[in-house]
Design a protein around this nucleic acid. Structure first.
Lengths: 183, 183
DNA sequence: CAATGATATGCAACAAGTTGCATATTGCTG
DNA sequence: CAGCAATATGCAACTTGTTGCATATCATTG
């Protein structure tokens, strides 16, 4: 399990509500970890029972109560223990590759369109990442030092997207070549 | 769900037992899809109930019975429908990146060791893929044409591994630099 | 000849993730 | 002012995936 650790990681950086965490998953961690709001709220509840986190209720006038979660000492310790211990290699699950593997069954035109869409999605993602990288490079040395580790995760995103795009180009090339030959 | 489709894909290429499928997941599809034997047997049972697959019992002298599964017409149709229809983008879940994100909490030496191990694992994987690619390139034109789509999935593996390794080098570089400066 | 690893199959309990539903407010847009 | 998106939280049912256990044979190796 690791949603637990992803949440601990986010809360270590900054306290927040379940909704805040959802946004931070979407905006920052989204490339390499995702969770639905239902999952997050359920996990927060569990982690509160395990005393890894605590919350302060912030009752706002006429708004639903906010639960602002913070790490407990126990939570901070659990995080640092997790960070110390080695991981097993994560499993890749890419349905697109299964589909390509069975690609001879598909309509080539349709497959081509899907690949074009795939490539463009990843190109957009890459552009987003490069913009964030630019921002990072134009921030202060102090900030850059602080954000060194998150920056490295951004680099993973950039290199990963480039590989995706390069591969997509190869597949598109192949599909177009065989298509025009009418195979 | 897509284990179902991965199994349909494998059976479309060649009939086999649950155990055969397990091996084929490990040996061929393993880079982008994985399943435990328990999962596979359970899924085969479900798919048999759904009439997507059928099996012939092969009773061997003194050996446990083999169930050799084959696609039914209905299964073949389900596969081709799945291949036709567009996929939603798969989610990335990479615990190592969560860890790096929280890397300032970790012992730098230990993190470095983990990254070295990560890089070497991926280097080994790349070597394996390149060996398979060589095999492909030295096979007959006919064979190459038959295996064109699986070959494209291999290319994904190769480009993916290269990106992994390149990134790992960046991280290792950073960790060694800051370590020697004693930060 | 005993131990191990490969072949071959499966159940049961549990953890993790998805989908659908439900509520309530604020602020913006047409 | 009606409708919609964003904020904010949560339950329940279901599907998927993991972990541990269980069985039985055959071939190899020490």
């Amino acid at each position: 399990m690791s949603l637990k650790h992803a949440i601990l990681t986010l809360l270590e950086t900054e306290d927040g509500t379940g909704y805040d965490l959802l946004k931070r998953f979407e905006d920052h961690l989204g490339y390499f970890w995702n969770a639905s709001h239902q999952q997050i709220y359920a996990q927060l509840k569990t982690m509160h029972n395990e005393a890894l986190i605590d919350y302060q209720l912030e009752a706002q006038d006429d708004k639903p109560d906010k639960k602002i979660y913070t790490l407990t000492d126990s939570g901070r310790q659990a995080l640092s223990e997790w960070v110390q211990q080695p991981l097993k290699l994560g499993k890749v699950k890419d349905a697109l590759l299964v589909k390509i593997y069975a690609g001879h069954l598909a309509d080539k035109e349709q497959l081509l369109e899907e690949m074009l869409h795939y490539r463009d999605s990843h190109k957009r993602m890459l552009q987003t990442f490069l913009a964030i990288e630019n921002e990072y490079h134009s921030s202060s040395k102090k900030k850059q030092h602080e954000l060194a580790m998150p920056y490295l995760t951004l680099r993973r995103g950039i290199l990963g997207e480039r590989a995706c795009i390069e591969w997509a180009e190869e597949v598109i090339n192949y599909l177009q070549k065989t298509n025009s030959r009418g195979q």
